[in-house]
């Protein structure tokens, strides 16, 4: 906002240039969706060219892709909310791990040192799990708003704390989960493919959060807080309350992800979620949400998460070394952040 404002204004009054049309194509929601479409076409055509049986473009395979996306997808919803406020959450995978072992432990062993002490109803265990995850998010939010610490550092701290607490609670996998914890793993048949309920839970959550962000007052305030925090405060938006709500809701979503994880793995695994933080950030970034905050769409995150799953799935079917998928994901993340960075600079 200094001397170059005038020149900039004159250029912005001109008709859309070629670069602005290009950036329209690259920016969400079109860019990520187009990209997802292209890789789907590639993996559909490849078996045809190589004379293989079509295994990619089948209902069963897409059901599998959704199933593989569910847990990281739900984590990435929470991550999207936080990144929209110009924050970041490194702790989500380990908060999920902590929640899942606590839920599993309570449901299987009950309260007490070796369990036998006090029986806990599995439903109560699930509610306690959701409470623990929400509390973890709430603590992140308090540290970010009250102590004004950078989210990166706060969640790096809570990442370690959650990891330690998980290991203090159990170092071994908790097996023999009771039925209510596995209920989300039961499947319904859609177009002849069996889709587990937890994959549908993910889709429902994406739609709910999409609706909230787009159509409700709090949704618009989340964007405003991430876009220009000072302006938001000046018009009277309770910035700290919005942030606290975002971090707590994200925690709640990590709790749901933990329940999906239990239903999917059918055990409580203290090793779970160690790379989920980066996977969820990857999904958000590939979905076109800006790390600078205030711009992006939660549906982009769904697409970003699907892109990672589709690449993994397609390469596996092509018999490629699975590590290539990680390599490609790395390149995509850098490319997506570069697009964000460049469009930020052009503003």
């Amino acid at each position: 906002m200094t001397t170059h404002t005038l020149e900039k204004s004159e250029s912005s009054e001109a008709i859309p240039t070629r670069s602005s049309r290009l950036s329209l194509l690259l920016t969400p929601p079109f860019g990520p969706l187009l990209f997802l479409f292209i890789i789907c076409v590639i993996f559909t055509v490849l078996p045809l060219l190589r004379g293989q049986e079509q295994r990619f473009l089948t209902v069963q395979n897409f059901a599998l892709i959704f199933q593989q996306t569910a847990v990281v997808g739900v984590l990435a919803i929470g991550q999207t909310l936080i990144i929209l406020t110009a924050g970041i959450d490194l702790s989500n995978g380990l908060v999920m791990a902590l929640t899942s072992v606590i839920t599993a432990g309570l449901a299987v062993h009950g309260f007490g040192p070796r369990g036998e002490a006090l029986y806990v109803d599995p439903i109560v265990a699930m509610l306690i799990g959701l409470g623990v995850a929400s509390l973890a998010g709430f603590i992140n939010g308090l540290l970010v708003t009250r102590l004004k610490l950078p989210p990166f550092i706060v969640t790096l701290g809570t990442l370690n704390i959650a990891f330690a607490l998980t290991r203090m609670y159990t170092t071994t996998t908790i097996n023999g989960l009771p039925q209510p914890l596995l209920a989300l793993g039961s499947a319904i048949t859609v177009f002849g493919a069996r889709v587990p309920l937890y994959a549908l839970v993910m889709l429902v959550l994406f739609f709910v959060v999409w609706f909230i962000l787009r159509e409700t007052r709090i949704g618009r305030h989340i964007y405003a807080v991430g876009d220009n925090r000072e302006a938001a405060a000046l018009v009277g938006i309770p910035v700290n309350r919005v942030l606290l709500l975002v971090y707590t809701s994200a925690g709640f979503l990590y709790g749901i992800a933990a329940l999906l994880l239990l239903a999917r793995q059918e055990n409580g695994d203290p090793q779970a979620g160690q790379t989920s933080n980066l996977e969820s950030i990857t999904a958000v970034v590939l979905g076109g949400t800006s790390l600078f905050g205030g711009r992006g769409h939660v549906m982009g995150t769904l697409i970003g998460a699907l892109v990672v799953s589709v690449i993994r799935n397609g390469l596996t079917q092509q018999g490629a070394n699975p590590i290539i998928q990680t390599f490609i994901t790395g390149i995509l993340v850098i490319a997506a952040v570069a697009v964000d960075q460049l469009s930020q600079r052009s503003r």
């Binding site: 906002m1 618009r220 938001a232 000046l234 018009v235 205030g294």
Partner: peptide, 21 residues
């Protein structure tokens, strides 16, 4: 205020009603 007052990524209507939707 001098230049802190708008939210660049939001549209004009959203800015006019920001905080008073």
């Amino acid at each position: 205020y001098q230049n802190l007052a708008v939210s660049p990524a939001l549209n004009i209507t959203e800015n006019l009603f920001l905080g008073r939707e």
